[in-house]
Every structure is written in C-alpha cells, then in structure tokens.
C-alpha cells in the first residue's frame, strides 16, 4: 500500500506504523520505503509499504492495492498507480476527487477535520491509520493499535489512541455499508459513482 500526503503530516510515520504492525505485531514480513528527497513541509511525500507472508523480493510498489491520500497533490500523483479492484482511502477534508477510469473501492473520511476536533491537527495521520485498519485487511486492527501506541511519544498515546479509534470506527461502519457511506460523505460527482462497483 501507499500512504501519501505532504511533508509535515506524518506520512512517513504512518507508513512506518503500518509496516511495524505487520512485521512485529502480525508476525508477517514487511518493508517500508519512503520517497526521500528535499521534502520540506508542504511538498508531496509518500511511503510505500509491502506486506507479505513470504520474504519480500522487491520492496517497491509497481502498483498499489491500497492507496491512502491525505493531500490533493498526492491524490493526483498516485491515483493512477492504484490497481484495478484496489482500495482508495481519502481524507476528504483535503482531497476532492475527480472522475476515475477504473473499478476501485473508495472509502472517505474527514480525517483532518476529526483531528482538528480532537484539538490536534497533527493526529490526522493516526485517524487515517484507524481508517485503514477499519476498512482494509493490510494489517489487523489490534496490530495497528499496538504499533501506534509504541510509535508515538508516551505523553501523546492517549490522544493518538482516541484519534485511532475515531478513524477505526468510522471505517468499520463504512465498510459494513459496503463503502456506500463513502459516497454520501464525499458528495461525489455523479459520473464517479457511475464508474464504481458499489453504485451499480
């Protein structure tokens, strides 16, 4: 999967936490590589996570099964690499979707809004991780929870767990509704809905 957004959102940390959840807590194999450039706050940034049962031969994504986007720029840059039948997760506070020409499952959450409501915009990435755990099978929710708890500063664990739970519950509900809620929440354009599986 790929976690994407802009520098300063904790995108690399989010990718690290997914990988750690898989490698340490789910006892699988995992790699995480980051786009490492002159990234300062505000520019596009992403991390690639590969999770597998077997040792990982190639630690880079040729196409992603799951793509989480936390910025418009990242969405536009990476949506093309999403595999047919893959899963797209967007932070609808920051991303406005356009029409898609492939069949993907879409889940949408106002992650940054949730984080702001919690009083710290900085935990939007953890809201998104909760959402990842709630909507996909990349890692188990328990593993993700443990990985979050062990990767953030001790003083911030409580806030982060709150953020995680919000994202998780929002995700579980949306998944139960087959992703349909995502469409409502995101108020997507009609043509987009027409192009996805769930709407038909």
């Amino acid at each position: 999967m790929r976690v994407s957004g802009f520098g300063g959102q904790g995108i690399i940390l989010a990718g690290y936490i997914v990988g750690k959840a898989a490698a340490i807590h789910d006892k699988k194999q995992a790699t995480m590589v980051q786009a490492y450039g002159p990234e300062a706050r505000g520019s596009a940034c992403s991390s690639q996570v590969v999770v597998a049962e077997e040792p990982i031969e190639f630690p880079y994504l040729s196409a992603s099964d799951v793509l989480a986007c936390m910025s418009q720029e990242a969405y536009e840059k990476f949506v093309g690499e999403l595999r047919e039948g893959g899963t797209l997760l967007i932070d609808e506070t920051l991303v406005t979707m356009g029409a898609l020409d492939k069949d993907v499952q879409i889940f949408s959450i106002p992650a940054t809004q949730f984080a702001e409501d919690l009083g710290r915009k900085i935990v939007a990435n953890i809201v998104m991780l909760g959402f990842v755990a709630g909507t996909t099978d990349v890692v188990t929710a328990e593993a993700m929870r443990e990985a979050v708890a062990s990767s953030v500063p001790p003083a911030a664990v409580e806030l982060n767990m709150k953020a995680f739970d919000q994202g998780y519950e929002y995700g579980v509900a949306q998944r139960a509704a087959g992703g349909a809620a995502a469409f409502k929440a995101a108020a997507l354009e009609a043509e987009l809905i027409g192009s996805t599986q769930e709407a038909s």
Partner: peptide
C-alpha cells in the same frame, strides 16, 4: 541509500 533508508523486519 535504498537499503540504508528502507525499513524492514
């Protein structure tokens, strides 16, 4: 660099 910055089990 790729190995140095790659995170892995």
């Amino acid at each position: 660099e790729s190995m140095g910055h790659m995170t892995e089990k």
